[in-house]
Amino acid sequence: MKVERNDPRKLVVESEDCVFYFSKPFDVPVYVEHGIDMGIAGSDVVEERGCDLFIPLELPFGRCRLSVIAPRERVVPVESMEGYRVGTKYPGIASRFFSSRNVDVEIIRLNGSVELAPIAGIADVLVDIVDTGRTLAANDLVEVEKVVDVSALLLVNRIAQKVKFDRINEIIHEIKRVTENV
């Protein structure tokens, strides 16, 4: 199946018997939970959104990690972050992480360019995606501790799995076959 999206502003593309919806990555699990048959999103987003859906495959791309990040000159262990303000796009994951370590922090929800928060002084540390580390280095930030590994996931709506059982299994097997050797 070939999906051509010539205009990036176009949010809906049809191909063969499928319709593809191009939503914001953070919204993919929500769309799938509420009725879109299948989707692909990062495990970070799926965990943060806490949606009720099936995850039949982990996909071999989008691998990175969600970590606690601090300005280079203020690096301390997580246990010493009591009372810190934590800037993040992932308030749920961050909150659970610090709670699991019995460290009481204030979570500040941000929507993008979170690296700005410690520079602007509105957060002491961050919880955010670390991939190559180049963005961190460019902003004089350091990864303190990994919170969780992240990878892309194939998501399936719970009801679609039942009512389109054969078609969805066929697509899952085909994606699995194609990605197995990646």
Binding site: H34, R158, I159
Partner: peptide, 9 residues
């Protein structure tokens, strides 16, 4: 219990 018209049980 589910319906194809709704994405959730």
């Amino acid at each position: 219990v589910y319906s194809p018209k709704l994405g959730r049980p």
